[in-house]
Design a protein around this nucleic acid. Structure first.
Length: 303
DNA sequence: AATTCGTCCAACCGCTGGACT
DNA sequence: CAGTCCAGCGGTTGGACGAAT
């Protein structure tokens, strides 16, 4: 398209920001707001491009930024949201007040991705490597995954609309465990999961029942919640290898323990992906459905 | 003590899509 | 409608730092 560069790169400073530059930027925005990022550096007297200023502000200087390590709850939420939204860091960050997309992206790339790998889960699809069967990468599972993405987007929009119109009546708080994903399961996409299973000659799976392998994985994912929740070995600065070993051994235990459950071997990884999400203890973490969680939660009866 | 290696994270780069002309 | 501008986004990089050798 032949665009001009965002700024004249000559004579512009790059690299780490100095405290003086930070101060100038903060002071300028405090007094004038950021206005046009493109013109800001000139107006503020900074030898930076507007993009650099914006990034510095949004990722570091903004007063509402939450500093410090991620809490286990935040990590858990990031994993859950990533399972639904994929690498849409900004969308994920929108659900974690005070956290930036950059921060979450870094957290994912340095900790959480590794954690899923250790558990035998593909960090991109959240599907287990270990249950790879004939369905893996099949058009059916790809289509289903895309459908799930579409469906989650649709639900998101639906939730937002319902919030705005406030049409629903609040439901009792006891429905806290009424997992949001059950709605997904009960919608067209859940239907497609079941249909595909039937077409593949497998017995249909329900959120509450699955094969030995799926059970082991879902048990892990279910356990992962509490583990991430601060017990045992999982800490932000903990030994990653130890962490990895913990998951591995847990996985082995669970795999051994569920062998006797004896249900037919179902090797559909797409079901397992859903299972992972279904089994994940969500608690009140449905905030990804929009900004005002309380309103949505009460209106949809999820809290 | 010096060097190497791995991890973390701030910052940059390039692309995309909406707004504007 | 096409061209341009701009903010925002996700991927990637590179320097700082600590641990291991």
């Amino acid at each position: 398209m032949g665009r001009t560069p965002c700024c004249d790169k000559k004579d512009l400073k790059k690299g780490p920001w100095t405290p003086e530059e930070d101060e100038i930027l903060v002071e300028y925005i405090r007094q004038n707001g950021h206005g046009s990022w493109r013109s800001l550096p000139k107006l503020a007297g900074l030898l930076r491009c507007g993009k650099s200023c914006r990034l510095r502000w949004t990722n570091y200087l903004r007063p509402d930024i939450k500093r410090g390590p991620f809490t286990p709850e935040e990590e858990k939420l990031v994993i859950q949201l990533h399972g639904i939204l994929g690498n849409r860091w900004a969308a994920i960050a929108a659900q974690l007040p005070g956290r930036t997309d950059n921060e979450i992206k870094n957290l994912w790339n340095t900790h959480l991705k590794k954690r899923l790998l250790c558990m035998g889960l593909d960090p991109q699809t959240h599907e287990p490597f270990l249950t790879r069967g004939p369905m893996t990468n099949s058009p059916a599972s790809t289509v289903t995954r895309h459908m799930a993405q579409w469906e989650s987007a649709r639900l998101e929009a639906e939730a937002r609309l319902s919030r705005e119109s406030n049409l629903f009546n609040p439901l009792p708080l006891q429905k806290a465990d009424a997992d949001h994903f059950l709605r997904l399961w009960n919608s067209e996409v859940g239907e497609s999961f079941r249909k595909i299973n039937m077409e593949m000659g497998r017995s249909p799976v329900s959120p509450a029942s699955s094969c030995a392998k799926c059970e082991s994985n879902s048990a892990i994912s279910a356990e992962m919640g509490p583990s991430l929740g601060g017990s045992a070995a999982v800490t932000n600065d903990g030994d990653e290898d130890k962490e990895c070993e913990t998951y591995k051994s847990y996985f082995q235990q669970m795999a051994a323990g569920t062998e006797s459950s004896g249900s037919s071997a179902l090797e559909d990884s797409s079901d397992t992906a859903l299972q992972l999400l279904l089994d994940f203890p969500i608690n009140n973490d449905i905030s990804f459905l929009g900004g005002d969680i309380d309103q949505y939660a009460s209106s949809s009866g999820l809290v």
